[in-house]
Amino acid sequence: MMEFKYNDKTSATLLSVPLILCFFDYPEELTGFARETVKGETNINRSVPNQYGTRFTDTSTLEFALIKEDQTEFTDDEQRKVNKWLTSPKLPKWLEFHNSDGTTTIYRGTFTDVRWKLVGGIIGVVCLFECDSPYAWKSYEEHFTASGNHTIYVDSDETEEYVYPVMTVKTETTTDIVIKNLTDNENTMKIHTYAKLPMTFDCKLCIPTDATTNGIISYKDLGWEDVGNIYWLRLLPGENVIQITGDADVRITYRCPQKKAGGFLC
C-alpha cells in the first residue's frame, strides 16, 4: 500500500483506519516543465537580444484521492482531522510518497484544495497539491567516520546548479577539522569543534546550530573570523571528492531535483 507523509503525519496512521491513495479521475497529461527565455529588448543598435537564461513558467500539481482502507464513510471527527492535517500549514512543506517498491518521491508545496466526495455519505477526499518547483526531489545521506577522501555522487537533474547540503559534525575531543571539496576548486570549511557536541550546518540558509539548549552557535565559536569570506559546503552535479582532515563523525544529507513527470503517478 502506498502512503505519504506530510506535516509530520502519515496517511497510514492519521486515523484509526489507514487511508489509501486512489484516483476518481485519472489525469490525461502531466505538466510542470514549461520554460521561457529571459532576455533583453532589441533596438536599432542591437538586433540580437541579450540572453539571461531561462525560467520555469509552470510548476507541478498533484491531484489524488484518499479513502479509508475499510471503505467506510468518514465521520465528522475524521473529516476534521484530515482537514486540519492538510490545510493548516501556511507555507510550503515537504510531501513524501513512500512507494510500494521501497523508493521515496518527494515534493515541496501546499495543499490548495480539499474536496469531499459524496455518495450517500462522505466516502473520500480529493486533494490538490501545488508544488513550488517544477519537479520532484530525492533525498540522500552520506555518513563518514574517518579522515581521508570520500566520494559523493550527486544524481541531480539540474546540471548547472549547486546542491547545498545539511551537514552534522561531531568529534570526541575539542579540536579543529577541515572539510574540503576537492572538486569545487578545493574550497574549504575549517571548523573548531567541541567535545561530543554535535554541530549542524544548513549550507543553503547559512545557519550553524548545535545541540545546546538554545542551539545558538556564533561564528567566533567556530573559529571563523573573516565573516566576509566564509565558504559553505556545496556539491556539484556528478562526482564530488570530499576531503576530511581530523577525527570526526560527519553526516551529510541533501535533496536533488528529479525531473520525472508525475513522480508517484508513473
Rank of each mutant, 00 (worst) to 15 (best):
Y6A: 02
D8G: 00
L15T: 05
S16V: 10
P18F: 11
L19V: 02
I20V: 15
I20N: 06
F23Y: 10
T31Y: 06
A34S: 15
V38D: 11
E41W: 06
T42V: 14
S47A: 09
N50D: 15
G53I: 12
T54S: 14
R55E: 14
F56W: 08
F56G: 03
F56Q: 00
T57H: 03
D58F: 00
T61F: 06
A65D: 15
L66P: 04
K68G: 07
K68Y: 09
E69C: 10
D70S: 09
Q71A: 09
T75E: 04
T75C: 10
D77K: 13
R80F: 13
K81S: 13
V82E: 03
L86V: 08
P89R: 00
P89Q: 01
P89E: 02
K93P: 01
W94E: 15
E96I: 07
E96H: 07
F97S: 03
H98A: 12
I106F: 04
Y107P: 02
T110L: 15
D113N: 15
V114R: 01
V119N: 12
I122N: 07
G124Y: 11
V126L: 12
L128A: 05
D132Q: 07
S133P: 00
Y135N: 03
Y135L: 00
A136F: 13
A136H: 07
Y140F: 13
E142K: 15
E142R: 12
T145I: 13
G148N: 13
N149Y: 02
H150Y: 05
T151S: 11
T151Q: 09
Y153I: 14
D157K: 04
E158C: 07
V166P: 00
V166D: 10
V169W: 08
V169P: 08
E172S: 11
T173R: 06
I177N: 03
I179G: 05
H192V: 06
A195M: 06
A195K: 15
L197A: 04
L197G: 04
D210P: 09
D226L: 04
G228T: 03
N229T: 05
P237E: 00
V241T: 14
V250G: 10
R251I: 10
I252D: 08
I252E: 06
T253G: 05
Y254S: 02
C256D: 04
P257T: 07
Q258P: 00
Q258V: 15
K260W: 11
A261N: 11
G263Q: 10
F264E: 05
L265Y: 15
